[in-house]
Amino acid sequence: MAELTNANMPEELQNDPRVPDDLKNNVFITSLDKIYNWGRKRSVWPMLFGLACCAIEMIATAASRHDLSRFGWELMRASPRQADLMIVSGTVTKKMIPQIVRLYNQMPEPRYVIAMGACATAGGPFKEGYNVVSGVDKFIPVDVYITGCPPRPEALLHSFIKLQEKIEKQSLRNVPWYRKGEEDVIPVPVLGPDLVDPRRAQEIKGKAEQIAEGQPAA
């Protein structure tokens, strides 16, 4: 998400404790925003992309009993290019994270991410595993988290409602996707002796050297 500025908010509102933090940035929700967000929040298309056990509950959510389409989130798209929402439904492994980041980069803005279940949130019961990433938010920004292992289909629906709330609060003025210039692309992690996050390369190098020299890397 881009830096949100409080520049155009009156001073007294900014300091008013009654205004929730989230809204402080978005006090000027114009009617245009309302229409814009109304349309957007009812046509979020998730990506057809399942990782583990939670994906089974995600499919159950899309099936007749819970019927995702009631929210207008009609179609699960198999291609990231046509999707607005990535539901990270399951354990994110080190072997899989490069693909997830790549898929995320391929999704057009506005894009949202739901981390479904304990695993996607922070590693879950498999957190201690050597091939498990401790939460997908280590690499891609997450909009809504759901705990539970697995979350019930209703819990997933609840997260959709939360995401709709979040979408409602966005304003045309400061949404990042109409900015000029390059889009942020998240560097894709590399599989070396272990997972290497290119953003941390320098830090890793330093520490590895320290360890090689026998100092404890604090």
Partner: peptide
């Protein structure tokens, strides 16, 4: 209570 999903306000995992 399964309705625990939330979007992070500040510290993402503080609530969890």
């Amino acid at each position: 209570d399964y309705e625990l999903s939330y979007y992070p306000h500040q510290e993402p995992h503080a609530r969890l």
